Amino acid sequence: MVGVAARKPIDPVAVRAAVLAVAPWLLDDAAPEPTRSELAAAVRLSVRTLAQLAPGNSVEVRVPPFVAVQCIEGPRHTRGTPPNVVETDARTWLLLATGLAGYDDAVGAGRLSASGHRAPAIVDLLPIVPLDRQV
């Protein structure tokens, strides 16, 4: 029987480097937008770090078009639309992942969609790569 290959552990140094590459844009929305590859690396690595920190299948985190992962222990979802979904754009995700924005503020502003009672569980795992406004 062939099993599913385990995902390689995410290197925290690589995650931090990827996020720091886009930090000027996160800190100043007037700064030039990062390249698509820089943005993709920062989003993918930070979201996959979330999944590594909280393995499970009860919450799906989506940052289209870059990545979607399942995380947080709990009931496994296998078909159709999951009941617990967090979805946002790349910039909002990175602001959350760095602690430069708050989950409730992003939901309130309509920049983050969260469904299901388990979706807010990701808050306990944020920020993933803390930044302050002095970077």
Rank of each mutant, 00 (worst) to 15 (best):
P55K: 00
A101C: 11
C71G: 00
T88R: 12
V107R: 07
A109F: 13
R36M: 10
R76V: 07
P65E: 04
A106D: 14
H77M: 11
R62M: 11
Y103G: 13
C71I: 05
V47I: 07
E60G: 14
T81F: 02
E60L: 13
S37K: 07
R48M: 06
P83F: 00
S37M: 04
A40G: 14
L95S: 03
L95A: 02
R48T: 04
V63G: 15
R36Y: 06
Q52S: 05
V63E: 11
D89L: 10
P82C: 08
T49W: 04
D105G: 11
E38H: 06
P55Y: 01
T88F: 06
Y103V: 15
S46F: 06
V63K: 15
H77Y: 01
L39R: 02
R44D: 00
A106W: 13
L53Y: 05
H77A: 12
A109T: 12
A97W: 04
P75Y: 00
S113G: 08
P55H: 01
R48D: 10
Y103M: 11
G108H: 08
P65S: 07
R48A: 00
R76S: 10
L96F: 01
R36F: 01
G56T: 05
Q52C: 10
T78H: 10
A42S: 08
W93H: 05
Y103L: 14
A40Q: 12
T78Y: 10
L53W: 10
L112I: 11
G110D: 09
R48G: 00
A42H: 00
Q70G: 07
E87S: 15
P64L: 15
E87I: 06
L100D: 14
E38P: 06
